[in-house]
């Protein structure tokens, strides 16, 4: 192993995930591979040398030296609108990573897994779901995905397809689809009690999203008796919607 350095990365593909989010595929020559849940730091440099850097989770297993990120556009943000709106295929950024050895899921883990994502916090959780599928793992997964409304769903088609051993529950916060049993509201104790695993199953819990969401969800898990050392969190900051 060696110290991390910045690597040039070229955008090779970009596609809309929702009206405000895009999945970006980068070619990163020499990419060493990564674990599900890890993130990268992305650095942008302007003509005059000004730089800005932000962290983004890797959305799925690598394909050789290709990796994918999904980025939500933060209105007035410095970096995310550049990535989602201004960047064209062939443009370059620098990427440092993969990093983070704590908020990761390894295919050898057999314990039940509870994934709780808010907004763009779904990204590293999706990487875990994809890694599970790719490895043919039998570890039972449950995903609770909190988001404003159905139009904000990332990876909608892929999450609709049956994936044995994975349960997906959407928790809408602003407007739920016509006829939904659960009215639109913020994540609550019932949601985690019904859609999650009982604490006695000792699931590994991964909670990710905007800081306020993570705080709230982690507190609810503690209140339901989940052990603090089995609750792993990744706060994205105020962003993520």
């Amino acid at each position: 192993m060696r110290r991390l350095t910045w690597r040039p990365a070229e955008l090779v593909h970009s596609s809309a995930e929702t009206a405000t989010a895009r999945t970006l595929r980068f070619r990163v020559p020499g990419w060493p591979g990564h674990l599900a849940g890890q993130h990268v730091d992305v650095r942008l440099t302007a003509e005059d040398g000004y730089t800005a850097q932000r962290s983004y989770s890797v959305a799925g297993p690598a394909d050789g030296d290709l990796i994918e990120l999904t980025v939500e556009t933060v209105p007035d943000g410095e970096v995310s609108p550049y990535l989602t709106e201004d960047m064209r295929v062939g443009d370059q950024v620098e990427i440092r990573g993969p990093v983070g050895g704590w908020f990761v899921w390894r295919p050898a883990d057999q314990s039940p897994v509870l994934l709780v994502g808010g907004g763009s916090g779904i990204v590293p959780l999706m990487a875990m779901i994809r890694a599970r599928r790719q490895a043919g793992s039998r570890a039972p997964f449950r995903l609770l995905y909190s988001l404003r409304d159905p139009a904000r769903r990332y990876y909608a088609g892929e999450l609709r397809r049956p994936d044995p051993g994975l349960d997906v529950t959407y928790l809408y916060t602003r407007s739920a689809p016509e006829g939904a049993a659960r009215p639109a509201r913020r994540i609550g104790l019932d949601d985690l009690a019904e859609g999650g695993w009982p604490a006695s199953f000792e699931p590994e819990c991964y909670v990710c999203g905007p800081t306020g969401f993570v705080e709230a969800a982690a507190d609810l898990l503690l209140a339901l008796g989940h052990a603090p050392e089995r609750i792993r969190t990744e706060r994205f900051g105020p962003t993520g919607g």
Binding site: R3, L4, R96
Partner: peptide, 25 residues
């Protein structure tokens, strides 16, 4: 409101200095 991140966010900056992952230490 608290607007902090988790120690995970140190992984990149510390990874520049150390060869082992410091965030799982």
């Amino acid at each position: 409101m608290t607007e902090h991140l988790d120690g995970n966010a140190l992984a990149g900056p510390l990874g520049e200095l150390f060869t082992v992952d410091m965030t799982s230490a």
